[in-house]
Computed example of a mutant assay.
Amino acid sequence: MEILASRVLFRPSNYDRSLAFYRDAIGLALAREYPGGTVFYAGQSLIELAAHGAPPAGAPPFPGALWLQVRDLYATQDELRGRGVAIAREARREPWGLHEMHVDDPDGVALIFVQVPDDHPLRRDTRG
């Protein structure tokens, strides 16, 4: 099997509210719009909001989180605050070495914004 592309697909409980959150509050770039949905660029991935097929009543929340890497986490935190986005957990360095900040989308999906410091193993070339 060969995977050619992937994206995360959400069916928000309120499409317009989630569209405004991802487009205006978070500031993701638009990849495409189609009748019934919007797709955003998210680094090397895509996030799609479907305006059709809302989640079933009583459906559990998204079982996980979106991990979104940024260049400067603290500047991102200031930018999001300036747009009125509530920060669920302040930016800080974690014991595993990454800097992380948490934000919840309108349906409770956790967005984990991450900065990888220069000295972190994710930045090392392991080929040699």
Results as ranks from 00 to 15, higher is better:
residue 74 Y to G: 02
residue 100 E to M: 15
residue 101 M to P: 03
residue 100 E to N: 12
residue 76 T to A: 11
residue 82 G to V: 12
residue 81 R to K: 15
residue 53 G to N: 10
residue 102 H to W: 14
residue 95 P to R: 05
residue 54 A to S: 10
residue 87 I to S: 07
residue 76 T to P: 05
residue 93 R to N: 09
residue 62 F to M: 01
residue 51 A to F: 02
residue 84 G to A: 06
residue 54 A to Y: 02
residue 101 M to E: 12
residue 100 E to P: 05
residue 101 M to C: 15
residue 92 R to W: 11
residue 67 W to E: 04
residue 50 A to S: 15
residue 91 A to H: 08
residue 102 H to N: 14
residue 92 R to F: 11
residue 77 Q to Y: 02
residue 62 F to G: 01
residue 75 A to C: 05
residue 54 A to G: 09
residue 79 E to A: 15
residue 62 F to C: 01
residue 85 V to A: 08
residue 77 Q to T: 13
residue 102 H to E: 14
residue 70 V to F: 06
residue 69 Q to R: 13
residue 84 G to Y: 04
residue 68 L to K: 01
residue 76 T to M: 13
residue 53 G to I: 01
residue 99 H to N: 14
residue 86 A to L: 06
residue 55 P to H: 00
residue 97 G to Y: 11
residue 69 Q to E: 08
residue 58 G to E: 14
residue 93 R to Q: 14
residue 96 W to Q: 01
residue 99 H to A: 13
residue 87 I to M: 10
residue 72 D to C: 04
residue 62 F to A: 01
residue 73 L to W: 07
residue 83 R to Q: 07
residue 59 A to Q: 13
residue 100 E to I: 15
residue 81 R to T: 13
residue 67 W to F: 10
residue 53 G to H: 02
residue 74 Y to F: 14
residue 69 Q to A: 12
residue 63 P to Q: 07
residue 78 D to C: 04
residue 58 G to H: 08
residue 79 E to C: 06
residue 53 G to M: 03
residue 55 P to G: 01
residue 57 A to Y: 10
residue 98 L to G: 11
residue 81 R to D: 03
residue 64 G to Y: 08
residue 90 E to Y: 07
residue 50 A to W: 10
residue 69 Q to Y: 11
residue 62 F to T: 03
residue 61 P to K: 09
residue 73 L to G: 09
residue 85 V to D: 06
residue 55 P to F: 00
residue 63 P to T: 05
residue 80 L to P: 04
residue 102 H to C: 13
residue 88 A to Y: 04
residue 80 L to T: 06
residue 57 A to E: 13
residue 88 A to I: 09
residue 67 W to L: 11
residue 54 A to L: 11
residue 65 A to Y: 13
residue 64 G to H: 08
residue 101 M to N: 04
residue 55 P to A: 00
residue 75 A to H: 10
residue 96 W to S: 01
residue 83 R to S: 03
residue 88 A to F: 05
residue 68 L to C: 01
residue 77 Q to I: 07
residue 78 D to V: 09
residue 67 W to H: 11
residue 78 D to T: 12
residue 74 Y to K: 03
residue 56 P to I: 04
residue 79 E to V: 03
residue 63 P to W: 03
residue 65 A to L: 11
